[in-house]
Design a protein around this nucleic acid. Sequence first.
DNA 1: TATGAATGAGTATTCATTCAT
DNA 2: TATGAATGAATACTCATTCAT
Lengths: 214, 214, 214, 214
Amino acid sequence: LTAKGLEMPETARANRRQAVDELKRTLILEAARRVFEMHGLEGASLRAIAKEAGYTAGAIYFHFPSKEAIYAALLTESLDRLCAAVAAAIAGVGNPADRLRATALAFFRFYAGQPHHLALGFYLFQGGIKPRGLTPDLNQPLNAKLVASLAPIATAAAAMGAAPEPARAILAGVFAHAVGLLLLQHTGRIRLFGCTAEPLMQDYLDGVIARLQG
Amino acid sequence: LTAKGLEMPETARANRRQAVDELKRTLILEAARRVFEMHGLEGASLRAIAKEAGYTAGAIYFHFPSKEAIYAALLTESLDRLCAAVAAAIAGVGNPADRLRATALAFFRFYAGQPHHLALGFYLFQGGIKPRGLTPDLNQPLNAKLVASLAPIATAAAAMGAAPEPARAILAGVFAHAVGLLLLQHTGRIRLFGCTAEPLMQDYLDGVIARLQG
Amino acid sequence: LTAKGLEMPETARANRRQAVDELKRTLILEAARRVFEMHGLEGASLRAIAKEAGYTAGAIYFHFPSKEAIYAALLTESLDRLCAAVAAAIAGVGNPADRLRATALAFFRFYAGQPHHLALGFYLFQGGIKPRGLTPDLNQPLNAKLVASLAPIATAAAAMGAAPEPARAILAGVFAHAVGLLLLQHTGRIRLFGCTAEPLMQDYLDGVIARLQG
Amino acid sequence: LTAKGLEMPETARANRRQAVDELKRTLILEAARRVFEMHGLEGASLRAIAKEAGYTAGAIYFHFPSKEAIYAALLTESLDRLCAAVAAAIAGVGNPADRLRATALAFFRFYAGQPHHLALGFYLFQGGIKPRGLTPDLNQPLNAKLVASLAPIATAAAAMGAAPEPARAILAGVFAHAVGLLLLQHTGRIRLFGCTAEPLMQDYLDGVIARLQG
DNA sequence: TATGAATGAGTATTCATTCAT
DNA sequence: TATGAATGAATACTCATTCAT
């Protein structure tokens, strides 16, 4: 076992170790997501997650410092997927109005079609993550991701002639409207009004775009 | 202590007892509300509520049959206050457009100014997802109250010429927008967009009303 | 309100009060018996008994000093009924062998046909009544009643020529056999042996009587 | 620490772990038995058992899935010992009459000398009444063990010429008589009759055997 | 790394009993 | 006598977390 013939062995080993680590973390997160989907927020105990991942509860602590950290990681990943979904939706869309609509709809549909991501988001919003888990250190990048996912809306609005402040107001309004409709749909209460969510979202976007254009 | 005063002593005693009972129930509910605000959904255990109210855990059961019954009472009262707030806001407002706006703003402000009612409302919404104790028997009247509080919006829209279905869509849109903005405000995330919630709500209502009138 | 015309008013009032008292005690005991039968030993909480009797839990304590005292009273009454049943069965039966059989069968059938009396008896036997409830003061008369109910067996055996000690042994044997069979029947385990209880009891008595006569 | 000793280290460790686990289970069961004896059925709470075993209540759940599982294990073991005791008693006993007597006496003495097993057995019998956790899945093998322990009686009776049905009746009778006497002895009430239990059992068996032979 | 035992605090609810009214 | 509120201890069971191995 000479140094010869072994190109950067320590680094290689470290890399491999890191890769394995990453993989295991991912497996645990996927298990968590499954438990989350199947049994909801309350049923997602550390033990349940560990079991689903094929681990003992104690073993989880080698990969995550706490239960809340798992939620945080889940949420981070969720928002990354959201960003990716939006990016994919507006790739190649040149017209600003179309970009605005595409962004908003991608956001809406991402959550409408994947209720567990929505639940995760609301969990964050309602302060479900305890102080120890949701430090400002974590909170800020999460917020940044959220804003980034919808940023094309402001950009598009600006491209359509809106000043910076109104552009941000448009962004906030779209976000609020989408969130409100998603909540209504997710809880089944939209039935109370005899509507479905997506057409209402489309209507709202029609109005926003019309005003920008008119 | 005239003979007159002694005329119905039993009834008087019963009344007093009933009043005391009512008071104690109220004290417990207020304690529950405080715990709810301070420690959130999960932290609002029966023990915590009892302690906050100055009671033993077991003593609560003389006033409420279960923990969920406390939540239910809290929610019911909250929605009753919401209805009252809306009713007060539109009393004497004759013009349909004004009634629409007044209703929506009363709803918005009720929750914007009283975050604990908002938290309670979201609990209902999440309870809707996983009805853990929130039985349909209870859920339905709560939904009815919620819808009733906003009904004047649909009525006003109809008075302004909207057909029944669009009128309900307007109702749903207003509700969704308000809820979305409230969530943004409640979680402090509206700052991310450099906006404040109420002007955005006003803007939205302007648009709704303009479209109805135009 | 002179003393005249009111013959022994204090005594009369006391009598009436005592009678009312006795009646209420009886009503409570009957309620207890019903609860006992319906919900079994474990389900027979003081509250349940009180409710069944139309009382509040606290009110019971004016009539019985403790929950165990109710069980004790129930058991006392149960044994009184047992004695009465046996007495009725052997009334007018002159032949000693017939008296022996009649006594044993009356005992057996009393419990076979009224499982709750059996459960009550076993509860006593297994020490279900706590020290505070089953004092020697109480235990002794209960034992005495039990022995008394079966005493005609020993008497009959003596009349058939058995010495005192063997007569008591016969008594004990009959009691043990009956109890064993009743337990088997009550728990449904007699099915395991493909038998029914009463014929086995008859067989046993046949043997006992044959030996006494032979 | 020879190489040989290291040959199967994992297996060795697993074995040791399993042995330790078994031991701990046994310690808990013994604690349970002690609590059971001292405080009776109702007093044998999980907490009490855990405390007696030197554990926290929650720790028990690493060794038994529920309280009832502890009872079940206790009962199973008790009946296994009973079977073993009977088997030992009749080993090498060839004569049918002797085998019958040996079986019955072994059964009788097993319980007469170990009152806690008796209490356990009665729990089974009462559990049979109200199957609170004693599921049929469990109940059946327990019944089977019980029957198996006494089966040599029926076999012996058959060998002595009894038809199948009478043989089972003899089995049932012996069981009932033994149980009745054990109950009398266990509760001290046999003194009321001025007898001791075992001679009465012997007498009964004398009669049974005599009748089979006569 | 991973296990599995252990802890200690926690869950909602029930209970017999007491006591002011 | 009776009520109804109150207590304090009890119930089985779950949880996130720690730690020796």
